[in-house]
Design a protein around this nucleic acid. Structure first.
Lengths: 163, 163
DNA sequence: CCGAGTTAATGGCATATGCCGGCATATTGT
DNA sequence: ACAATATGCCGGCATATGCCATTAACTCGG
C-alpha cells in the first residue's frame, strides 16, 4: 500500500505529468544539464590528449593571457580562486603548468605554460576543434554563436551584482 | 628562448590582445562559465535552506518524477548514474531522501523524498523563486525563456549521438 | 618606520561529476 | 533448467568547484 501509493500517486494526478514542470523553468538546471552533456562531448573528444575539457580550458586561457596571476585567471574563467588553484594542481604535477612568484608583488603567483604545456595545448586544440565542429554541425553554427553570445552576456558584468 | 617566448611574447605582440580569442569561441567554455556564475547565484539564494542548488535540483526532480529509479533520475538530469548516486548521499544521510529496493526488480533502487524531504523542498522552492526572479529581472524573462529553450534542445535527443 | 586594514594565495573540508571494475539480479537462447 | 548475456547499482579513484579560515605581503595614515 505504501510503495504503491508512492509509485502511482504522482503520475496519475491530472494536475501534472511526470518530470516536465519544475525543472523546465529553472535556468540553473537547464544550464547544468546542458553543461554536463556538452562537457562529456568535449571530454570524449579530448581523451586522446589525456586532458579533460576543463583542463583544456585552463591551458587555453593561460596561453591566451600569457602569464596571468591566479586571480586574473580565476576571474577570466568566472571561477573561484581556490577552485582554480585546485584545478591547476594536476597540471602542475604533470609539468604542463608552472607557478612562480611575481617579482613585484611577492604575494602573487604568475601562471605560465611550460614548453610541454604549450605542446600539449596545441595537440589538444586539434581535438577540441573536432568536438567543436561536430557540435556545431549538429546544432548549427550560427545558432551556437548566438547561444555563446547569450551565455557570455550572462557571465559578464551586469550580472555580477544582481545579488 | 623557449621560456622567454612563453612568458613575454604574448602581451607585447600586436597580433592579439590578451584573453579574448581562444575561449570566446568554445561552446563548452561559455557554458561552463555561465553555469558557474549562475550556480553561485542560486547557491547563495538557497543558502538559508541549507541546500545547494544541485541538491535542490535533485529534490525537485525526485518530487516531479515521484519515485524514479536511480537510472531514471540520472537520465532525466543528464547525469552519470554514479554521479547521481554520490550526489544523493548527503541527502540520504540527512534523511531528505530514501532509497528502497524495487519490488519487481531487486536490482533497481527507487528514490523517494521523505516527508522531511518534501518539506525541505517546498521551503527551498521559495528561495529558488527569488533567485529565479532576480535573475530574470536582470536578464529578461523572455530572453531567459529562449535561452532555456536552446539549452534544452542542446541537452535533448538529437545530440545524444553526435559522436 | 609602525600598526591597521587590504589583498593574494594556501589548506582543509564538503559536495559535484564521471569513469571503471565488480557484484547481484534479471533475461534470453537453447 | 542452465549457461551466457545484459542490466542496475555499488565502491573506489580522480578531478571540478566552492566556502572558510589562515598566512604572507602590500598599502597607507600618522
Amino acid at each position: 500500500m505504501n510503495a504503491r501509493s508512492v509509485v502511482r500517486k504522482r503520475g496519475s494526478a491530472p494536475e501534472r505529468l511526470a518530470g516536465t514542470d519544475l525543472l523546465n523553468h529553472c535556468n540553473n538546471a537547464a544550464l547544468r544539464k546542458a553543461a554536463r552533456r556538452l562537457g562529456r562531448l568535449y571530454d570524449a573528444a579530448l581523451q586522446p590528449s589525456g586532458l579533460r575539457a576543463t583542463q583544456y580550458i585552463l591551458l587555453a586561457q593561460i596561453y591566451d593571457l600569457g602569464c596571468p596571476t591566479m586571480a586574473d585567471l580565476a576571474d577570466s574563467l568566472i571561477m573561484d580562486l581556490s577552485a582554480t588553484r585546485h584545478s591547476l594542481e594536476p597540471l602542475v604535477r604533470d609539468r604542463l603548468v608552472r607557478l612562480r612568484v611575481d617579482e613585484k608583488d611577492r604575494r602573487a603567483r604568475r601562471v605560465t605554460l611550460t614548453p610541454a604545456g604549450i605542446a600539449k595545448f596545441k595537440e589538444a586544440m586539434q581535438l577540441w576543434r573536432k568536438a567543436q565542429d561536430r557540435f556545431e554541425r549538429a546544432f548549427g553554427s550560427a545558432r551556437a554563436s548566438k547561444l555563446r553570445s547569450e551565455l557570455s552576456a550572462l557571465s559578464s558584468e551586469p550580472f555580477k551584482e544582481i545579488f
